[in-house]
Amino acid sequence: MTPPRPAPDPVQVVKQRRDAALAALVDGVPYIGFLGIRFDRRGDELTALLPFDAKLIGNPDLPAIHGGVTAAFLEVAAIVELSWTLLWEELEQGRIDPAHLRPETLPRLPKTIGFTTDYLRSGLPRDAYARARVARSGRRFASVRVEAWQDNRDRPFAHAMGHFLMPGS
């Protein structure tokens, strides 16, 4: 006879643990704060949010979000998604204690090798959203696809593909 399974953690405990881990990952990076990027979490799915701000404007005549900001937003979303995927495993299997997670104790971040951004539409002076998907995650390299949209989910204004060097390799 198998021993009775331990009761699962209460939902609030689980949420707190995951949110703490995500905060440690995001809050430690000054550039994410500089651009004002936040992350919305539903289970393991992350959505990056870029609230509109006047300092993000490239062309003041249109006005449009700076193409470099768009690329940066996509790159941040891709790196955080990749790091989060790595962290999630550790967290869920109890190998990382979120109570002691600080930006300086987190596993090292992946490094960008190459990043290619395609601009599909002009970035409007409105909030933007992005979701990334790890296309391949290996021991040394990982590849991430990421897409950003504004008012309409079916009309992305940019997408990108990035290749990353895994931490510790």
Binding site: V29, P30, L35, G58, H66, G67, G68, V76, F115
Partner: peptide, 27 residues
């Protein structure tokens, strides 16, 4: 600039800021 750091442990600037510089310079 400290505000542009992407890796707090090394102090290296985030690739995104380099993207903004490259895009502007190309333009």
């Amino acid at each position: 600039d400290a505000r542009l750091v992407g890796d707090p442990r090394s102090g290296v600037i985030h690739g995104g800021a380099i993207s903004a510089l490259m895009d502007t310079c190309g333009g």
